[in-house]
Nucleic acid binder design. Structure first.
Lengths: 197, 197
DNA sequence: CATCACACGGTCTGTCTCGGACCGTACTGA
DNA sequence: TCAGTACGGTCCGAGACAGACCGTGTGATG
């Protein structure tokens, strides 16, 4: 019941249980696999340790069922729901973080062979196309279901990002970054002044 | 001289030293701050411990200078350069990872108040605009310098991503995700088949 | 009926990562 | 001479992470 620091991972767990109802870690593991997992990956071991922490903090309630195989089912307590709601309503200060090995390699490419870049770009184009196809398939499968509609919205963000990357690597391999730049400026209704901090 | 596992962080260190020449951790800290740091953040403490590991593995050479303040200067060894080059030439298997708290909140928003979403979106729009302004300023400052040109290219990727996010949140707040979708499809020369597997 | 393979459900471990608090040391200028 | 502040660095505890590993049921097979 002591207070703990809640990390994003904590909120993923709370959130998943809020959306799905009482769940075992294994349930979470599978559910995460084809939803949040796409844009916030973490090892499945966390889905066993994290609920334990949250239960210790009183945000989840544990009920152990022992018929046949041992199963720990966690459900949201009132204070768990409160914590989640408070987080959802709180301002988001951090900017998103990208971790892109390809971008790193590009940054340091001067040190290596010039030939590396086209290869890299070609790989990336393929990967992003594949990922786009996966996302599109998900939209196709679940897009019709009104119940899952709200969660599908984040897919649009994901797609937008994938396309952005795809356009970049394509332009790079075609040596046409300027056109990219121009298209970008055209596509956005004038971003306005940077609202000096 | 024993072998170590090289993480992306290791390559950031090797890469920075390759680009800048011999450096102290503090140099790296500052250099990272206004370059790689934008798309691959890590705590500065790593910039003290990581070079040590790399030196132990023979990829960096340490020279301690003791005039006045103690300074550890690391420089690239041949095998360090080789390791970096090999990495640059190696295929990149992992997809990029995003960590976006705002996206998480959006995903779980059904659980909270409906009013949260517009607020969130507005915040995000502002943040992305600010970040775009920072990037543009960097382009303006360094874009003219041919020496730093290669490294500027990654800024284009960053900008492309920022604009993608900006467009998404803008569309969301305007309730016009469909237009976003259509614009996306128009903007890309047909992505082609997902190249099975 | 025995047993084997395999999906299920879960645990554990060691190593790295992450922030952030904290601490001397020089230089600067009042 | 002293305070303030940039410099340069260390340390620590909590979490994140990958991945090896392990019991348990179940259905197929001989």
């Amino acid at each position: 019941m002591s207070t703990v620091r809640l990390s994003p991972t904590s909120y993923v767990v709370l959130g998943m249980i809020a959306l799905r109802g009482p769940s075992t870690p294994y349930d979470l593991k599978r559910a995460v696999g084809h939803s949040v997992g796409y844009f916030w990956n973490f090892p499945h071991a966390q889905l066993y340790s994290e609920p334990e922490r949250l239960a210790a903090a009183g945000l989840l309630a544990l009920s152990v069922e022992d018929s046949g195989r041992r199963r720990r089912t966690y459900s949201l307590t009132d204070s768990g729901r409160d914590a989640l709601r408070a987080w959802l309503a709180s301002p988001t200060d951090e900017h998103f973080q990208m971790r892109d090995i390809a971008e790193l390699k590009l940054f340091f490419n001067e040190v290596g062979e010039p030939g590396n870049v086209p290869t890299l770009a070609t790989e990336q184009i393929k990967q992003h196309q594949e990922r786009i196809a996966v996302y599109e398939a998900m939209v196709e499968r679940f897009g019709g279901d009104p119940a899952s509609r709200p969660r599908m919205i984040t897919l649009e963000l994901g797609l937008e990002m994938e396309y952005a990357a795809l356009r970049f690597w394509t332009a790079l391999v075609e040596g046409d970054l300027d056109r990219l730049r121009r298209a970008r400026e055209r596509s956005t209704a004038t971003p306005g002044a940077p609202t000096s901090e």
